[in-house]
């Protein structure tokens, strides 16, 4: 295989001989973030159990969980996958295409929400005979 290349791809060997301290610190960071997520998850559970749950509050907490998740993803990619130690060029070619997810997520969820609106507005306006395969479900279980 070596005959295939006119020159080596790797210009210098980065020093990875540091201690494992950084790895363990990241482990604790990830654990704390996960515990925080779980705490918020349980908080949401308790809000839901109460009478008249405050939906704005729940939404806010869910947003917080999302941010914590992104923080976790950052630590995994940057430290565990060593992307933070790579040269800037590589980091950019990975991170920039992932920005496509922004519109990917936004447009899909937006349209999903719009189907809900349409369904709620027009459901029940077309009369159809209701036949439900309840027996089939039971049969499948047996």
């Amino acid at each position: 295989m070596a005959a295939h290349y006119s020159s080596p791809e790797i210009t210098f060997h980065p020093e990875h001989t540091g201690t494992t301290k950084r790895i363990w610190r990241t482990f604790w960071v990830l654990s704390v973030l996960t515990i925080l997520e779980l705490a918020i998850g349980l908080l949401i559970y308790n809000i839901h159990k109460g009478e008249n749950p405050n939906h704005t509050l729940v939404l806010g907490f869910k947003g917080m969980v999302c941010i914590l998740t992104l923080a976790k993803a950052y630590y995994i990619v940057s430290v565990f996958m060593h992307l933070g130690d790579e040269v800037r060029n590589l980091i950019m070619t990975i991170v920039v295409p992932l920005c496509l997810f922004i519109w990917f997520i936004a447009a899909f969820l937006w349209d999903g929400n719009s189907w809900k609106t349409l369904r709620n507005r027009y459901n029940g306006t077309t009369p159809i005979e209701k036949v439900v395969p309840a027996a089939k479900e039971k049969g499948a279980k047996d």
Binding site: F104, A107, D111, G112, I128
Partner: peptide
């Protein structure tokens, strides 16, 4: 989905979702 006036058991999905995935 209604076939010959009967509703299929499938519920909750969306045919348009496939179009989104396909055209992506």
């Amino acid at each position: 989905i209604v076939v010959n006036g009967k509703i299929l058991p499938n519920e909750g999905g969306s045919a348009i979702l496939f179009q989104h995935l396909f055209w992506f």
